[in-house]
């Protein structure tokens, strides 16, 4: 069953990855799965058929391009970027991808409260398991190491004192991942999944 929220570009890229030969069965199957993108899928199939006719040379005449200079410059630039980049917190990272906490949590299949607590530093980052980091990084489309840096950088929000309060507000003790999952409102199956990474 297709995901109705899947973006057109993602669907078309998977179409290109999966399809070598355009046949009626292939088109029918993809349009059946993604009727909302039927026209785009047909158009993309036609573009695949057109591709070989842009050519004129043969494989024997192929001259590979040298990308050495480009690769060296890109690696240098990437290294400088890593050194200079300020790591956002989770909420800012989601905003950059035009996501909100609710949507991010829904895509991962986890309680919104967990994502919210991670974003405000209410869950100890070192207790967050690898399977969540992998899933979160994949959802954000970034490297796992970058996502870990984002989690580490998610701090409690500054709290303001309530009227007539005699003591400044405190954040309370941050919980471990296990504590947060067990206390959440998720079903037992989902809790088991997020506690063990299996299921």
């Amino acid at each position: 069953m297709s995901d109705p929220t899947e973006r057109l570009e993602d669907v078309l890229i998977r179409f290109h990855e999966a399809v070598d030969a355009v046949t009626p069965g292939v088109i029918d199957a993809w349009i059946s799965d993604y009727p909302q993108y039927a026209d785009a899928i047909r158009a993309e199939a036609l573009e695949i058929l057109k591709l070989p006719y842009h050519g004129g040379a043969t494989a024997a005449e192929y001259q590979p391009r040298d990308y050495t200079a480009k690769v060296q410059a890109a690696v240098r630039h990437a290294t400088e970027r890593v050194e200079k980049t300020e790591v956002p917190d989770l909420r800012a990272a989601l905003e950059r991808q035009e996501l909100d906490v609710r949507t991010f949590a829904a895509r991962l299949g986890i309680a919104r409260s967990i994502v919210s607590d991670i974003g405000t530093g209410q869950i100890v980052p070192s207790t967050i398991p690898g399977w969540f980091k992998r899933a979160g990084a994949e959802c954000l489309g970034c490297a796992i190491e970058w996502f870990e840096a984002i989690l580490e950088n998610s701090r409690p929000r500054a709290l303001t004192a309530a009227f007539k309060a005699s003591e400044p507000p405190t954040t309370g003790r941050a919980r471990t991942w296990d504590e947060a999952i067990r206390a959440s409102g998720m079903s037992e199956d989902r809790k088991a999944f997020w506690l063990t990474g299996r299921g």
């Binding site: 998977r14 290109h16 990855e17 489309g141």
Partner: peptide, 20 residues
Amino acid sequence: DLQSADGAGFEKSFKGKLRY
């Protein structure tokens, strides 16, 4: 670009993404 979703996309689809 570690922040690039397109870059991460190449981990799932190489040939397909190139053709697209």
